[in-house]
Each structure stands twice: as C-alpha cells, then as structure tokens.
C-alpha cells in the first residue's frame, strides 16, 4: 500500500527498507535477512518471504534468516526507465492508474463522489499511497474475501483483508514515545533536587566546622 508512516519501514531491525523518490516502500533484497518483522507489523501482512535466497545464504544458512521478504516496490526498475508499473500496463480494464499522489488522490475523491462510492487506503493505517475506489462498501468486500477464504479453506498469508478502521501500530505506541522523550528532563530535575539537598547539607556542616576552627583560635 506504500503507507505514509509505514511501520514495516520504520521498524525494520536492520534499517534496510527504503522509501524511493516516488514514495514506494522498497525492501533491499540484498540485505534483507527474511526475519518477517515487516510482515508482522504490517496491518495487511503484505511482505511475503521467498525462502532459499538472500544474504543469509552466504552467511549462516542453517541458523539465521530464512529468505528474503518481498513486496510491491511500485516496479522501481520500470519507473527508472520511465515506463509505467506493470499492473497499470497489464490491467485489461484500465482500472489502475499511476501518477503523482496529490493528483491521484484528488481524482479518487472526484470519482468516488461521481459514483457515490467509497475509498480505501486514505485513512487506513494512517494513510497510504494506494487508493481503491468502489461503489460497493469495503466492509462488504471484506466479508466476501473472508467468505471466499473460508470456502477454499485458505489460511495462508498473502490475501489481505479490507477491514475498515485499520490502526497503525506506531500510533498505538505514541504516548509511550513521548514519555521516553520526557524522561531525561525528569531525571535531571530529580538529580538537581537531591544534589542540591546534599550539597546544602554539606555546606551547613562545613560552615559549622569553620566556626569551631575560629573559636579555637
């Protein structure tokens, strides 16, 4: 979906998921260890593992990694050549359109208004670059996907749902982030108070000794 705040990208433990200049969220297949954290934190389980390939094969094939995670990269190689993405070119109905985000977004809303339809992907997971427009409510579509999966006994990954109200994992942990960033200030304050107390206590003592010394003379 190429999320605006993509948890898969931000949380990769090796930092090898990049954003291209087109905004595509792209996994670096040369450095991915196939740990699948990106899949776990993605609201739609989108990244999928290809076993038996990747960096770990050169490092420790028995132990670490387990392949490479792949996901849509907006056909980065084709875009580089100035071509359009394969899905857009291949769709027989011409239903997929690729273009600058703001332009496409405007168009999606216009189209939705025209057909009295709905949009998926603009608020889900706090916003993505992929927008679906449909005159069937997406809850219905999601139900249909679920029903079909049940019918076919399909429990594998790779057939995403279309539930509404998809929450971004990073949003959930927001409060804690702020607490983390405020903690040092609290620490400095607490230290300031104790050090001040100890120091002024010492001064009193020293002051006392001073007096005694004077008296002796």
């Amino acid at each position: 979906m190429h999320c605006l705040d993509a948890p898969c990208q931000k949380l990769c433990p090796f930092g090898v998921i990049e954003k291209t200049k087109h905004g595509a969220v792209k996994i670096d297949e040369n450095f991915c260890m196939g740990g699948a954290k990106c899949r776990a934190v993605c609201s739609w389980d989108i990244p999928q593992r290809q076993a038996g390939v990747g960096l770990y094969m050169q490092l420790v094939p028995e132990l670490a990694g387990g392949g490479v995670m792949y996901k849509c990269d907006m056909c980065a190689d084709l875009l580089k050549e100035g071509k359009s993405p394969a899905c857009e070119a291949a769709c027989p109905k011409g239903a997929i359109e690729f273009g600058p985000y703001e332009q496409i977004r405007k168009k999606a809303y216009e189209r939705a208004k025209e057909i009295g339809g709905f949009i998926y992907g603009d608020v889900e997971n706090s916003g993505t670059l992929t927008l679906y427009v449909s005159d069937v409510p997406f809850d219905k579509i999601d139900e249909a996907i679920e029903a079909k999966k049940k019918e076919e006994n399909d429990t594998r990954f790779g057939r995403p749902h279309m539930k509404s109200e998809v929450e971004n994992m990073l949003e959930t942990t927001h409060g804690y982030m702020l607490a983390t960033l405020i903690a040092p200030i609290a620490g400095a304050a607490a230290a300031g108070i104790t050090a001040y107390k100890v120091l002024s206590g010492q001064k009193k003592k020293e002051g006392g000794e001073h007096c005694e010394a004077k008296e002796e003379k």
Partner: peptide, 22 residues
C-alpha cells in the same frame, strides 16, 4: 522497550546531573 528506555534515560541523566553538580 519504550518504558525501560524512559527509565534508563531518567537514571542516566540523573547520574550525570547529580555528579556534575557535586
């Protein structure tokens, strides 16, 4: 992790400020 990062930051700044002041 966030929670203990917060406590670590709390204690380390405490440590630095306290000993620098003293």
């Amino acid at each position: 992790h966030y929670f203990f990062a917060a406590t670590l930051l709390f204690f380390t700044t405490y440590h630095i400020v306290y000993h620098v002041m003293k």
